[in-house]
Design a protein around this nucleic acid. Structure first.
Lengths: 252, 252
DNA sequence: GCCGTTTATTTGTCTATACATAAATTCAGA
DNA sequence: TCTGAATTTATGTATAGACAAATAAACGGC
């Protein structure tokens, strides 16, 4: 074979075929990982298998897989093969904060309570906020986090049950929803929105602070394949919390 | 030449020599970019030149340069060569916000005033805060940003003149220091710290808001090669500003 | 001087091959 | 059965050569 146009079973996309082969291989695999078809831990085909599948040289497959490995989507082990990485807890990128882990890391005592749990179809307002169709199955959770017995944060969360049906069966009184999602559901797009507000009477009561105290409001929404997975609004007493995000270049 | 151990002028590092060649080439170039030896816009040697320098095949050089390009450190143009990228305005990672750009993007009128400018050696407190030796030459700037004529942010900044001597000669009454730094000085490591406070009388006066209003405080420090470049504390009226950070995977 | 065409150069992609390296697996011996 | 050596296998690195694609620069005609 001289160049370009490798063998391809059934032509699927259109522009995909015009991509360089190594990028197409990469995109194919990436799609299967992000869609969940190949879950974390799954062993992706060996180089020689992909090379047969695409009818190309090993170097071409290798280029695609090496790029995926550098991007952190897969891990490669000699003699064993290449495996889909565990969910990107945080790819050193936009950090997702796990409140439980953070408090415990400071050596403080962590506790939380699930205030509300409601499974229901999305109303028009929620649908707009989440960018989903009205009527989509939602799980709404409210909880309160404590550090050393003092209220630390109030969390209002919506989970899209269409994307994460398992969530319905989880007992979030045991594991906080944020921690569970972080460890079980991969995402590929996220947005943080951070602002400051003065606590109103209700929030002040919940957080056990004076009315009017400055609070930090962190809104996070995550997506997978363009579909909303969860949206959460967390409010912290301003004097109690410092949101820290650090970036250091990936060495390798 | 069969394999491994490419020609190398003078042995420099120790472990560097044990690295695979393409990683060594990559590390060499990366070091020159991050140190500022090869500034943004600089044309790095052509593949055939590097190939002669390291006595290796073009594919090896290509692998190194492609990786640097994917990491966003260089940009490659056919027939023209490869060029050091403009400072990582934001490598889709931890976003550095340029207040001027943000306000103008919203279609609002931007203006700012330089309140204070002071060139002086670092005192003990500043030295600790910045992680530098006491006595290090510092440039301290205070300025106020306006959107549509209304105060939008107060910025207190320290610039390490040892790392960025040019800063002393810049007229920051023309270009805000944040914008100038973003466009002229590459960094390598960054930390954001975000919290909320109630405005005291002084801040309230500066921002033209009621005393006690919740304000967002964003502290950012950036480093290059472990040395502090700048540290800036910016305070926004909480109701006027939403810090937004978005992460989407690199498509390429 | 201006504009379109040709040429030269650089990066982009791919092949086929080779040997190196790490580690899971098998196998032999105590 | 356990231990350690030999084998197998998948990835890691590198080579030399080929053609494709883009485009900066030189060239020619008007």
């Amino acid at each position: 074979m001289s160049q370009g146009a490798a063998a391809e079973g059934t032509a699927s996309g259109r522009d995909r075929l015009s991509l360089p082969l190594h990028q197409r291989i990469r995109a194919d695999i990436e799609a299967r990982i992000l869609s969940g078809t190949w879950p974390p831990g799954y062993r992706i085909p060996f180089e020689h298998e992909l090379m047969a599948e695409y009818g190309c040289a090993r170097m071409t497959v290798n280029k695609a897989l090496s790029a995926l490995a550098e991007a952190g989507l897969i891990e490669r082990r000699r003699r064993a093969g290449s495996f889909v990485s565990r969910p990107r807890v945080q790819s050193a990128v936009l950090e997702i904060h796990d409140i439980q882990a953070e408090i415990q890391q400071r050596g403080q005592d962590y506790r939380f309570e699930l205030t509300q749990r409601l499974s229901h179809p999305a109303g028009p307002a929620e649908a707009t906020l989440l960018g989903i169709a009205p009527g989509t199955a939602l799980l709404t959770l409210t909880c309160r986090h404590f550090a050393n017995g003092r209220p630390f944060a109030i969390e209002d969360r919506h989970i899209n049950l269409t994307q994460v049906p398992e969530a319905e069966t989880i007992d979030f009184a045991v594991e906080p929803p944020g921690t569970w999602l972080l460890h079980h559901v991969p995402w590929n797009e996220a947005e943080h929105r951070i602002s400051a507000i003065n606590a109103d009477a209700a929030l002040a009561g919940d957080l056990d602070i004076d009315s009017g105290t400055a609070c930090l409001v962190v809104t996070r929404q995550t997506w997978r394949g363009g579909e909303t997975i969860t949206r959460v609004v967390t409010r912290f007493p301003g004097d109690l919390y410092d949101l820290v995000a650090r970036f250091v270049p990936s060495s390798n």
